[in-house]
């Protein structure tokens, strides 16, 4: 089976400091793939390179059989990569509906059709009741779901989620976990960065552990979470 996303030897340096070094992995179609690691491990940098928000210094990224490294983020989005931001970035002065309509307009030139897609996605994410509210007036959990909704409206093949559970209460987390599981069942491939281990273990079919910009483990959740190196460098400090 071919991978939807395959990353090889990806590297990024900031002023000589290696943020990500020679990381490689494959995300199969239909997977939920999680990247975990302590703060400053280079997760978001890795993410930004895949999404085209940051150029990489070395390595390749292949998506759906095409090289996408070197593309801008709008080009990556056009190829089918949807993303959320760790620090949420809604279009603040616009309504919830318009936020999502803008996402949907990537795949259609008809505003009416985009509205249709938007209301579908908003229903899916329990935001339909808020559709006429201005985005800046939403609570944090709602804004996080709005980010997911906007990304989904672009009809991505791969959804990149950057800590969408962070700062949410457990009930909120469970709600998003359930939504993501449904989306995945409907065929969406998901790559997520997450600190909330509850969510990771509930969702991920594969996990990659990043530490100081390098991959220290990769595999099924069971295997990875028992890995001594992982326990020592990451879980030992935070989760146990």
């Amino acid at each position: 089976m071919t991978a939807l996303l395959s990353v090889r030897d990806l590297s990024k340096r900031f002023r000589g400091l290696a943020a990500v070094s020679n990381v490689g992995f494959d995300v199969a179609e239909g997977d939920i793939f999680a990247i975990i690691g302590p703060n400053g491990a280079g997760k978001t940098t890795l993410f930004n390179m895949i999404a085209g928000a940051m150029p990489c210094d070395g390595g390749t990224i292949t998506f759906a059989g095409e090289r996408i490294d070197g593309l801008r983020s709008d080009q990556a989005a056009q190829r089918g990569i949807g993303r959320t931001f760790q620090v949420v970035k809604p279009f603040p002065a616009l309504t919830v509906e318009d936020n999502v309509v803008i996402g949907a307009l990537l795949r259609t030139t008809s505003v009416n059709e985009a509205r249709g897609i938007a209301s579908e996605v908003l229903t899916q994410l329990d935001l339909i009741a808020r559709k006429d509210q201005v985005a800046s007036s939403l609570t944090l959990p709602d804004r996080k779901r709005l980010e997911v909704a906007r990304a989904l409206a672009t009809r991505p093949k791969l959804l990149l989620l950057d800590e969408v559970m962070a700062g949410l209460r457990p009930t909120e987390t469970d709600r998003i976990v359930a939504i993501l599981r449904d989306l995945n069942r409907a065929g969406l491939t998901i790559l997520l960065i997450e600190h909330v281990m509850r969510a990771v273990t509930a969702l991920a079919s594969r996990i990659l552990v990043l530490h100081h910009g390098a991959k220290i483990a990769e595999g099924t959740p069971d295997a990875v979470l028992r890995d001594p190196a992982v326990i020592e460098s990451y879980l030992g400090a935070e989760a146990l």
Partner: peptide
């Protein structure tokens, strides 16, 4: 409107 509100987020939805 998207570009006005947040250029980076606008890029992320393919604009």
């Amino acid at each position: 409107l998207a570009v006005r509100e947040d250029p980076e987020a606008a890029r992320a939805v393919g604009i």
